[in-house]
Amino acid sequence: MFNWLSPLQVFTLDTTMITTVLVVAVHIAFRAGLFNLAPLGFAAIGGYTTALLVTKQHWPTLLGIIAGIIGAAVLAGLFALPVLRLRGIYLALGTVALAQAIVIGISNFDFTNGTLGIDRIPNRVTTLELMILLIVLFVLLELERRSHFGRAAAAVRLDERTASGLGINIRRIRLYSFIISAALAGLAGALEAHRTTVISPEQYGFGVLIPIFVYALVGGDGHWLGPVLVCWAIVVLRQYIDFAGSAWEHYIYGVLLIVMMMLAPSGLTDPKLLRKLRFRKSRRLRLAAERAAADEAAAVAAEVERAARSGGDPVDASTIISQAPSIAAAP
């Protein structure tokens, strides 16, 4: 089906789709206000679970991937109890530590083959399957966003106390968001393992998270489509700035992070940002209307003065005003 694409393009397409899943995972956590820096740890769990089960126990690939998702979700559930007690930057710090602990654990255990990683993982994930999976995921995401849970999660991010006052169980929302985020990250990790066929612990370092982070933050936490579109846009952009070398990519990510935080800390899909843009536009229109009214009033005043100076019949001011209804209408 994808024969008309070059192998490199297919590779880029596959990578982008898997990255999209990871971006969505980060978005789900951000939407509930969880500054979660651990998705790569959970991706590592997902990848290693399926890799070990499929290569050592000869499980079918589909079951392996599902086991990867469940493994990541269960681990998130276990660690949620201590980690979700933390707030704000302490949550960020705790999740960084958690992700690093997972990666260090993997690179030191024997059954994960240490820092060497696992190779010869069967490559059984096709582009078409990934595409179908992504479409299904998007439909589910949109349904979830419109559901009670999705709205409640957004409310928790915007104002925890108000959300709590409205009867939303904050602990449950945070817990479920954390687990869903981890499960999606596990899915992305499992797919990635079956695409690259080789995995090793260094694949899940903190530096790998930075691009994902850029997509999620620039896209904003208002709607899942924002981060996804930003991810795709940057992938397309990257095809064109290839000639500039890989250092430029880092510069661009760094600058994007800083500029976004300075201008729109809640990302491009933030309803507040959109409202502000709309307000600015309407204010410009209102100013133009006021200026037109003022011009008209000045013209009327000049007319009255000229009539008075010429000594002729003084023009009744009220008739002029009635000729210019916009003055009466002006505030």
Binding site: G88, A92, F213, H250, V255, M261, P265
Partner: peptide, 16 residues
């Protein structure tokens, strides 16, 4: 700005 904005800016600075 919220406190996480500072964290993200420092991540950007370290990246650059």
């Amino acid at each position: 700005a919220p406190e996480f904005a500072f964290v993200i800016v420092t991540i950007g600075v370290s990246q650059i």
